[in-house]
Amino acid sequence: MPAVDRFLRLLFTALAAAFATTGLLFFCFPDATIATLNAAGRPVGFPPAPASALRFWLSLAVAYMMLVTLLAAAIARDPRGRADLMPILAAGKATSSLTCAGYFVASSPAFIYLANALVDGTLALVVLGAYGVVWATSGTGGARDRQLLQAVLEALVPRGGAFATGAADVALDDALVRYFARLHPLGPAGLRVLLRSLEYGTVVFERTRPFSRLDLAARERALAAWETSRLGLRRQLVASLKLLGLLHFYERPETWPGIGYDDSYLRRKLLAGPNAAAHAARLGA
């Protein structure tokens, strides 16, 4: 089992255990739970939340904790196969967090509201992060990744631009896919995240359509906007992809006449040097 899958199974098993324990504490010791949280907030000046003899809300809370426990337990058995349950679990935790934050601001600044808003908000982000990990490392979606990569590379090295040969003429996308696969086990996941950042970055920053739906000229302008952005991360992302793309582009023999590269000269120098045997074996000479 891949390390990522083992981590996800452990994560959701721990969440299921935590949810079950919390729900049991709520059910068995409702007043003590509130009193404990009030005591935790008292030293820093939070007003106490009142205890209540009404158990109707407790019944709903325990039912909710049972539901999130079962969701987490189901996900833990097969995080990839049941990843569609993760947004549901995250939605429940986000709702709990946001409602408590609202009560903290608009009703009473009790510590119990703030604590639940922070804890459940964090849990919602953790679950969404796990969903993102499953998406990024999934074997599906390869065709879409390839389409996005081709759209980016076509804008980076268009046919008939600075060179008569373009990215599509030398299968540059194949070279980059192989490079990221060799780079690291999570290399393809990194490429997927990078491509989606470029795809929807035009929507967020340039207020246009997704990158792949733009015409070639608009895609070239979008890449230029990334290169000149005031956000360093945007510049670094596109610079990294540009560097890798051009390195693989320039290694193709079809591009050498356009840059004046003489392969035969370098071969002669290598084969006449002190490591001639090693170079001959590597070059097949």
Score class of each variant (00 low, 15 high):
residue 247 L to V: 12
residue 175 A to K: 15
residue 147 Q to I: 10
residue 86 M to Y: 02
residue 199 E to Q: 13
residue 191 L to N: 03
residue 33 T to D: 08
residue 186 L to Q: 06
residue 4 V to T: 13
residue 74 A to V: 07
residue 192 R to Y: 02
residue 192 R to I: 02
residue 146 R to F: 01
residue 214 L to W: 01
residue 280 A to S: 10
residue 65 M to C: 14
residue 182 R to A: 10
residue 231 L to R: 14
residue 167 A to N: 01
residue 180 F to M: 09
residue 38 N to R: 10
residue 265 Y to I: 11
residue 179 Y to G: 01
residue 86 M to V: 01
residue 27 F to Q: 13
residue 171 A to F: 11
residue 68 V to C: 07
residue 24 L to S: 07
residue 250 Y to R: 12
residue 31 D to P: 00
residue 245 G to R: 00
residue 261 Y to C: 04
residue 285 A to E: 14
residue 133 V to H: 01
residue 198 L to C: 12
residue 279 H to S: 13
residue 55 R to M: 06
residue 123 L to S: 04
residue 282 R to S: 10
residue 230 R to Q: 14
residue 275 N to L: 15
residue 273 G to A: 13
residue 151 A to W: 00
residue 80 R to Y: 14
residue 184 H to D: 15
residue 214 L to I: 04
residue 268 R to M: 10
residue 63 A to W: 08
residue 265 Y to D: 12
residue 224 A to N: 08
residue 151 A to M: 05
residue 130 A to W: 04
residue 239 A to K: 14
residue 214 L to K: 04
residue 260 G to M: 03
residue 194 L to S: 15
residue 95 T to A: 15
residue 157 V to D: 03
residue 106 A to C: 13
residue 37 L to I: 14
residue 252 R to T: 06
residue 137 T to N: 09
residue 79 P to S: 05
residue 95 T to Q: 08
residue 189 A to P: 05
residue 230 R to Y: 10
residue 14 A to N: 04
residue 120 D to T: 13
residue 28 C to G: 06
residue 270 L to R: 15
residue 120 D to A: 06
residue 90 A to D: 03
residue 197 S to C: 07
residue 120 D to Q: 10
residue 198 L to R: 07
residue 44 V to D: 12
residue 162 A to M: 09
residue 162 A to I: 08
residue 76 A to D: 09
residue 282 R to G: 04
residue 251 E to A: 14
residue 51 A to I: 13
residue 238 V to W: 03
residue 6 R to Y: 09
residue 254 E to T: 04
residue 93 K to S: 12
residue 231 L to V: 15
residue 24 L to Q: 11
residue 171 A to I: 08
residue 209 R to N: 10
residue 100 C to A: 14
residue 40 A to S: 12
residue 131 Y to R: 15
residue 241 L to K: 01
residue 234 R to Y: 13
residue 167 A to H: 00
residue 77 R to G: 04
residue 241 L to M: 15
residue 178 R to K: 06
residue 99 T to M: 15
residue 194 L to D: 12
residue 84 D to Q: 10
residue 244 L to N: 07
residue 78 D to F: 03
residue 159 R to N: 01
residue 135 W to P: 00
residue 12 F to D: 00
residue 270 L to N: 05
residue 53 A to K: 09
residue 269 K to I: 14
residue 268 R to I: 08
residue 188 P to Y: 03
residue 199 E to W: 03
residue 259 I to H: 08
residue 260 G to K: 02
residue 184 H to K: 03
residue 72 A to Q: 05
residue 265 Y to K: 14
residue 115 A to Y: 08
